[in-house]
Structure formats: C-alpha cells, structure tokens
Amino acid sequence: MATTVDAPPTPPPPAPPVKQDRRAGTGRLAALLVSPTMLVLALVVAYPILAAFRLSFYRDNDGIDPETGLVQSGETFVGLDNFTDMFSGDAGERFRNALMNTTTFTVVAVSIEVVLGVLMALVMHRAFKGRALVRAAILVPWAVPTAIAGLLWRWIFQADGVVNKILDLDEPVLWTTDGIQAWFAVIIADTWKTAPFIGLLVLAGLQVISNEVYEAAKLDGASPWKTFWSITLPLVKPTLLVAVLFRILDTLRLFDLPFTLIGPGKDATDTITVIAYEEAVKFGKYGPASAYSIFLFAYVAVVAFVFVKLLGADVLGTRDGKKGR
C-alpha cells in the first residue's frame, strides 16, 4: 500500500530501466522467435555438412575373410587419403576428368546462356502483338523439371531420334555414346533449359530502367547499338551479374542432365556430382563420395567469393540500398 502512495511523485526515474528492460525483453523474444529457424538450419544445413566433413576422413572396412567370405564391419580413419586419392591413381583420373567436365560445362554453357538470355529478355521487353505468348513460350523450358527434360532430350538425341533425322547424315551421330558429341548434347539441353532463367531475371532488370533515358538517347541521335552498350547493359548489369552467379553455382553442381540424358559412367559427361552419387549410392563408398562433395563445396564457395569480389555482383542488394539513400 505504502509503495503505491510513494510512487506517483517520482515517475521519471524508473522510465530508463523500463526502456532497457523492454529492449532486453524484445531481444530475448526475438531470439526465441528466431531459434526455431536456427535449429532447423542447424539440422538441415550445418549437421549434414559437418557429417560429410567427418565422413570424408573415414573409409568403410571392406576386407573379406578368406575363410567365410564375410565382410569386415566398421570404418577406419584414413586421414587425408580420400583427398589425396583425388589426384593419383585410377580414382584420381576419374575425379580430375569429372572436375574438368564440371568446369567446362559451367564456362561454356553459362556463356552461351548469357548471350541467349539477354537476347530473349530484349525480345520479351519489346511491346508488340502477341508479346504475352512469346513470354510464355520462352519460359516453358524453365518450367519443365530437369530430369524430365533430360529424358525428352534423350529421345531427341537417340540414334533414330529427331536430331539425326534433321541432320540426315549417312551415319547417324551417336549423341548418347561417350565422346565430344555427348558433351555438346548436354550443353545444348542445358542452354535450352536455363537460358530463359537469365532472360527472366534480365527482363526484370530491363523493366526498371526508365524510359526517359532512352528518349534522351534518341534525342541525342544515338544508334540502337550504342544505346544497348551504353545504357541498357550498364543499367541491367547488377541484375545480370546476380543471374550469372546463380547460373554458375547451379551448373557447378550439374547432375540431372548428364545422368538422365547421357547416363552415368561416360567419361565425356561425368560431373563431380555424378561420380559422388555413384561412389555413395552404387558402390557404398561414402568416404570418397564425401571427399568429392567437400571439394565441390569448397570449389563453389571459392568461385562465388571470387565472382562477388572481382565483378562486384550485388547478391544481397546492399549497394542499391546505399545508392538509394
């Protein structure tokens, strides 16, 4: 009772602590609200990565008892063996070949896709009759699941398929057999599949460029070519870089197209993910498979880092924010 009487004369002093309390309270509440997300992330992101990291230093025992024919159980710590094996012997040859394929697919496919994607965006951006139809048509490949697309392209590329009918050569090209033609088949299918993605993002970039800039260029008598290089491209560059970065990261982990279109075990098209899958799922050798995955993880991280640093790809939109203010 007494306190309630005393309190009214001095209301200001308690105010700051209350504010602090409230802030601390909000912080605690925020932590509480975020914690489920963090927990889920830890479970589905951190744990698999750490588990794969651990696995990459182990190998399953696979010795066979000559008397009973039974397999030894358990696993052995092998240090860096799984990693050093990537660069020596048969397994190393296979891995380096896969690394090479992964890299060449990324460089070549993404380059072609950028050119085609920008062209698609320019077409989709134009105002003309039937534009909605063209936009929809261009986006169809992007909407097809990749594994299905791989099977469709397999039919197109098979020995008596559409491509060979159109080419009409004396001897059909055996696209799905091992060799450079299989590599091209994957590039063609990947380009068909994902150039629309770049087109879509670039289109979004084009739409925010204000018309006044183009009108000014027109008044100054700039040629369409000059307008493209000096206005469109620089203004769409931030969006384009993000699109390219996404595509690079995506292509580095290319799996479904080589697997369904050409089939696993072909030297010309095996990527790192394909051989990691074969090692783990088919051969049951999780150690080397994890080592491959860890390598790919590092490779992707380095490429992304370099790309962001060198070209200044604005993934999180921070620069726009700064500029805006």
């Binding site: 008892d65 030894q72 052995t76």
Partner: peptide, 15 residues
C-alpha cells in the same frame, strides 16, 4: 594432430 588409421573393425560373427 597426426593420427594413424585407428580401426574399430572386427569381423562379423562367423556362422
């Protein structure tokens, strides 16, 4: 820390 192959192997019980 260098570690040699520590093996927790052991043949399965033979029938």
């Amino acid at each position: 820390v260098s570690a040699c192959g520590s093996s927790d192997s052991g043949s399965s019980p033979s029938s």
